[in-house]
């Protein structure tokens, strides 16, 4: 699924009471995606606010994917991968760590709320952690409300 397709399920014109955050999760194929799968298999409930996008490695997530997601109307982005030391490609997540440390600070610097871009390590066995993580992030974003920063023209009408 491409970024555009993942986000194509558009929020109806907002009625803030029923508003649900839309969270894009970049999940690494080897750990987090399997972890999310296990969450489902274990029947652990978590909010249906996430769109999971599978990537070969958290190191695959280019900062421009994240900015694009915000443009297209996502309220928060979560980048997840294997724990340091456990990367399927040995070192991919170490690069992710540096990259998103910088990117998060840059986004905060231009006025995005830091909660809207998060990163976390979730292994294939951590179903509960995944459940908690999604619940927590959803709560944080619910408290913040919809994101209106960086959005592109199709949202302009909605902004006013």
């Amino acid at each position: 699924m491409s970024v555009n397709e993942a986000l194509d399920q558009k929020t109806p014109t907002e009625n803030l009471e029923n508003w649900q955050p839309k969270i894009l999760v970049f999940a690494c194929n080897w750990c987090t995606y399997a972890g999310a799968d296990l969450t489902g298999l274990s029947r652990l409930q978590y909010p249906a606010t996430v769109r999971i996008l599978r990537v070969p490695c958290s190191g695959r997530v280019n900062p421009q994917f994240v900015i694009k997601a915000f443009q297209k109307g996502v309220d928060a982005v979560l980048v997840c991968g294997c724990h340091p030391g456990d990367c399927h490609y040995t070192t991919g997540n170490y690069f992710t760590r540096r990259r998103f440390l910088l990117m998060r600070r840059l986004m905060e610097y231009i006025g995005m709320e830091p909660e809207r871009l998060q990163a976390s390590w979730v292994s294939a066995a951590e179903a509960q952690k995944f459940q908690q993580l999604i619940t927590e992030v959803t709560e944080q974003i619910r408290a913040l409300g919809p994101n209106r920063k960086l959005r592109d023209v199709q949202w302009e009408q909605w902004n006013n």
Binding site: P63, I67, K68, L102, L106, L150, R151, D152, V153
Partner: peptide
């Protein structure tokens, strides 16, 4: 490639600015 549209608007400009800043980081 659909990364950036031809339209000149704030969102696209910001996308350009942030992407470029992170590419040369």
């Amino acid at each position: 490639k659909e990364w950036s549209a031809k339209a000149n608007n704030l969102s696209e400009n910001m996308f350009f600015a942030l992407t470029r800043a992170l590419h040369v980081a």
